[in-house]
Amino acid sequence: MKLKGVKKENLPEKVCPVCQRPFAWRKKWERNWNTVIYCSKKCGQAKRHLK
């Protein structure tokens, strides 16, 4: 996904299933944006503890 020159308000967003907050695309997720589920490591760990 090439997003060079895209304004911040036009970046793709997802909703975190743990905290229900929207989070936007980040450069570090450029190669695996399709597999990103949680907004942070904290939410990813919280989901594991809820099971």
Rank of each mutant, 00 (worst) to 15 (best):
K28I: 14
E9N: 12
K4Y: 05
L11K: 07
A46S: 12
S40E: 04
R26P: 01
K47W: 06
K28H: 11
K14G: 04
K47L: 04
V6M: 08
I37W: 04
A46Y: 02
K14N: 11
K41N: 14
N34E: 15
I37L: 13
R26Y: 02
A24H: 06
R48Q: 10
K51D: 08
H49E: 12
F23I: 10
K27D: 10
R31K: 15
E9G: 02
L11V: 05
H49S: 14
C19R: 01
Q20M: 12
C39H: 00
K8E: 08
W25P: 01
V15A: 09
K51V: 05
G5P: 03
N10H: 12
K27S: 14
T35I: 04
K2R: 11
V18T: 08
K47A: 15
W29A: 02
T35V: 08
P17H: 08
N34D: 15
K41D: 15
K14Y: 10
Y38P: 00
C19S: 05
K28S: 15
S40V: 06
P17F: 09
E13C: 09
R31V: 03
E30W: 02
M1H: 14
A46K: 08
A46G: 03
K2M: 10
K51C: 04
R26A: 12
E30L: 06
E13V: 10
S40Y: 03
R31W: 01
